[in-house]
Design a protein around this nucleic acid. Structure first.
Lengths: 339, 339
DNA sequence: CTGAAAGCGCTAACAC
DNA sequence: GTGTTAGCGCTTTCAG
């Protein structure tokens, strides 16, 4: 039903090949036929079938972007930046998400690859010990850039943050604000959460504070969980006076729990998040956080992937770490603040 | 380089067709060959080329979702809901966005169609007088569901909110809160903003309040613009005591402007948004807003589109309006509140 | 400058 | 049960 090259060829009495060439501005074509073809194409409102084209050129100009959750503003901002970097080069983003479920992640990756995307940008939730997905991708030579969460033992290009630095930055800031009993709402067990946790411990140590396991609670990456988990923390004796939260949504949840308990922020408990998500400055208590440079991550990932796609052969994996920056707002603005 | 049906056929000494049938569980195949084929496919880690398949079946199982901005939580939530509704039926979402630019919108639509998506869900920014995009889509029989912003004169299926009702609900609530000088931060000139504006005027009239043009300022849909525009409003004499904002981000911007001016919310000025976006309850001043049922919009749009795709011939356009609901929070919680 | 031939990887329709 | 033939809409190659 749709208009094809055939139709135009028939009507203008030239071959399909010629039409194809005209429409792609390729090869020598006489001005006369070029006009005729172009005119007819316009009349018929011809639209090329990229599927057919892709089958022969083996290029789809589509990049798969696979995220844990695109409702999360952190990832949404990355997606936007990536799309912006890709668009001018004629590439499109096929976005998908897998709700932090490694199995869905796998099947989504396969779908994207089956759709013949030219490359993949992935914020993976594969557990560190399971490298089969990456191995399979590598063996099939699918251009891949991991973002936010490293994986595959550095055998794959990566763009993200220095998570240990984030942990250090956040925790040191809390110390500088006068906090002495600093808690940490850990993220899920992926490497990234571990690195932030390490940073947290290193900072404590550096400032001569004891690491106290009861101040570390586990496994959250969204506000609802942050809320619950913070409630737990509030119920222990010797309540913390500062909390470093895995990310901004968790911090938002934590803030809600703290206020609900009738405590003041930052006087009773200071709170630091991570991500510097777009709305974190208009919250009930504007949130001190670590900016991870979402824009930068999106851009760099896109650029890196494109370079990989354009390269004649496999490039050796590159790792790009975006420098985290402390953004100080009300949630840690104590009178006795020194930093 | 990738494994094809050919490879498996050669190795197992059957025809390509047989392999194809085995892999799709179709037609009668002897248990013996089935096993052989399956085993070889697994050994080779065969992955079907959907591009090739699509070319012949004329189905891609991809749905295009085109949004003004997927960083906006309102649309992100719709996207998520749509993806969830589509996934179990084997469909994927190809998400793209156009930054409220009608020209980019057009070109993105064409890309998506060129990629042979099976249908399109679109929150369009085409100006009402320009129906050529819709006309072109209609003539090509591309299954299309408009969301959030109606268009094409009801010739196209639509899922969204009753925007006049939103305007009435929000404005009436402000009246009930004791506001008498109610301003409106209008959205951009699309039909939806006009409808909310109409609702605003109707509600004023119903409650015996005069409509006063100076209280209506124009053209914003994001927080930064909401901030600027609210500042303007604050500079006029006889400042408003209530504001109905086009959407939640605009309201957030407005709130910032109001606080910055040293005024109190809701005592000096009460604020109502629209959208009930995920973070609107954790803001500096939790925002009274109109819930538009984003989940519902996403689901319904997906279902409707699927029904359209499955139908033997063109269905007549359906319009689904989700009932807006008032969500009362702090930003309108005045002592003298009566509603 | 133009076109005939071949084929991308797969499936539909029909033989055998 | 299995294979043959044909073709989806397009581009590539190469001969004229």
């Amino acid at each position: 039903m749709p208009v094809t090259l055939q139709d135009i060829a028939r009507d203008t009495k030239v071959s399909v090949v010629t039409v194809s060439k005209v429409l792609r501005n390729q090869g020598r074509i006489s001005a006369a036929t070029r006009q005729r073809v172009l005119r007819r194409a316009r009349q018929l409102n011809y639209q090329p079938n990229w599927i057919a084209r892709s089958l022969v050129t083996r290029k789809t100009f589509a990049i798969g972007l696979l995220l844990p959750d695109f409702t999360h503003p952190f990832f949404a901002e990355i997606a936007k930046a990536a799309a912006e970097a890709l668009r001018p080069k004629g590439y499109h983003l096929v976005i998908s998400y897998f709700e932090e479920d490694p199995e869905i992640e796998k099947s989504e990756v396969e779908s994207l690859v089956a759709r013949q995307v030219d490359g993949l940008i992935l914020a993976s939730a594969q557990p560190p010990e399971k490298a089969d997905l990456f191995r399979s991708l590598r063996s099939r030579k699918v251009p891949l850039v991991l973002i936010d969460r490293p994986g595959d033992d550095g055998k794959c290009s990566f763009v993200g943050s220095d998570n240990e630095a984030i942990g250090i930055l956040a925790t040191s800031h809390l110390v500088a604000c006068g906090c002495r009993k600093i808690a940490h709402l850990r993220g899920p067990k992926v490497g990234i959460a571990a690195a932030r946790f390490t940073g947290y411990r290193k900072a404590l140590k550096k400032h001569g504070l004891d690491y106290c396991p009861k101040y570390v609670v586990n496994g959250s990456y969204e506000d609802s969980r942050g809320y619950e988990v913070m409630k737990q923390l509030l119920s222990i004796e010797a309540m913390p006076d500062g909390v470093f939260c895995y990310n901004d949504p968790v911090a938002i949840g934590a803030i809600n729990a703290i206020r609900e308990a009738g405590l003041r922020i930052p006087e009773d408990i200071a709170v630091v998040g991570a991500g510097n998500v777009h709305y974190s400055d208009v919250l009930a208590i504007p949130l001190t956080t670590i900016d991870q440079g979402t824009q930068e991550i999106g851009h760099q990932a896109a650029d890196l992937l494109l370079r990989q796609i354009g390269a004649p052969r496999l490039l050796r994996p590159t790792e790009i770490l975006i420098e985290p920056k402390l953004v100080i707002r009300e949630s840690t603005n104590r009178a006795r603040m020194k930093n």
